[in-house]
Write a protein that binds this DNA or RNA. Structure first.
Lengths: 227, 227
DNA sequence: ACAAAAGTGTTCCTTCTACACCCATGA
DNA sequence: TCATGGGTGTAGAAGGAACACTTTTGT
């Protein structure tokens, strides 16, 4: 075997971190503090270190950018991006991840980022550095199909939520309204999707709603139809 | 930016190449010609070169191992495997691919492989080098769900096939029988799944069956239920 | 009383499922 | 005419879609 064929390169992880905030699907976008693309928006990410697995690198980067423990949240590999020339610094292959979070305040601004902020994905479209627009598109599409077939939507919510909150997640991610009555029945009638806490939430106006927490079931079948 | 943090490594692509052959789901397994694991079974694969994208490397490796043009077949990224120590040669991260082929003769034995052969996945289980057992498991599970939601099963068949041939693919991959009559109706009633060629195949015994080729539709909705 | 959001009941329709039955061919 | 696999008809069950209607709160 000829060693010339063996290309040495650097491996990065890039994170598409999504949340539902102000009735919009938003992504965590940083402003780059270093070249290349200094001062331009990008997805958070960083280089793989010598002693860690790829998923560990993703969890570490998530913690560095958001201060949150990624092991409790949804973190999933999307795919590898490795077009020659996708990074001006040289041959860098990136493993893209999808991360789902509830709408929590961001405790820290990361080291490599001069700022980190939630931005609606509709506004981010077409503005990102490297091939991060493509990564974000893939992440959003993956999240959309995950809502159909898994209980992932509960990860967008906090520790307790109403069926209306959960429906709002679906409506925002899918971009169209759902029938509240059929949705309610479907969710409550699916064993392991949600569990009642016994508490209720009293809104400013209207009938109080029962509160639920995420159940133990992870997959949905039959799925929730996207309409 | 501290350069010590940037790990340089080599990137490999590994291919789980599946076919349906002799009423069994089989994988293309090579016997390694070089260290490490010389003489042991493994999935075909190789290192990324400097001028190619990851998917191009997968197509190239598929051609080298099977002599077939991968652009016409189904080739799909599974995920990256990068545990430190997964390869005794050093830090090597591998992008795993799923490839689907009809049951064709294998024209060539590859350069890095002393032999390449189809082996039923049930017999391969637990015998492969590196973390290739894990990769193959992921590939089989991905193929199973792809049959539900896409027209991928036609890729297992040749250029023309009967509905019975197609059903056999489903039965072998899923591991349980399907109702021939309902299956027939479902496939023929799904626009774009299959197109009649006008030809018929006369079997040794029994009624001749109409021949079809793959249609243009790639996704199935509603899906074919796995039972 | 009214607005607003939570939830229930009911009807219609599509699709899956199971199985009875008919069709076309070679031996 | 029989065995074998290809293909159609049809009745029942299950679940989705649509929507009328009731419930529970604050103002």
């Amino acid at each position: 075997m000829i060693d010339r064929e063996h290309l040495y390169l650097r491996l990065a992880v890039d994170l598409a971190i999504l949340t539902v905030r102000d009735d919009a699907l938003q992504a965590l976008v940083i402003t780059r503090a270093n070249e290349p693309f200094r001062g331009r928006p990008a997805l958070p990410g960083g280089f793989l270190r010598g002693d860690e697995d790829i998923d560990e690198a993703a969890v570490r980067e998530l913690a560095e950018e958001t201060g949150l423990d990624g092991t409790a949240l949804h973190l999933e590999q999307l795919r590898a991006y490795g077009a020659p020339g996708r990074d001006p610094r040289g041959r860098i292959v990136s493993i893209a991840f999808l991360a789902i979070m509830p709408d929590l305040p961001l405790p820290t601004a990361g080291s490599d980022a001069s700022s980190a902020a939630w931005v609606p994905v509709e506004r981010v479209r077409g503005t990102l550095s490297f091939d991060h627009d493509e990564i974000l598109d893939a992440a959003v599409e993956r999240a959309r199909t995950r809502l159909e077939f898994t209980t992932l939507a509960t990860t967008f919510c906090g520790p307790s939520f109403t069926i209306g909150d959960l429906r709002n997640v679906y409506e925002v991610v899918w971009g169209h309204p759902l029938d509240p009555r059929n949705f309610s029945r479907k969710v409550i009638g699916t064993p392991g999707f949600v569990e009642p806490t016994g508490e209720r939430r009293i809104p400013e106006i209207g009938r109080p709603a029962a509160l639920y927490r995420a159940g133990t079931e992870k997959s949905l079948n039959p799925p929730i139809m996207r309409g």
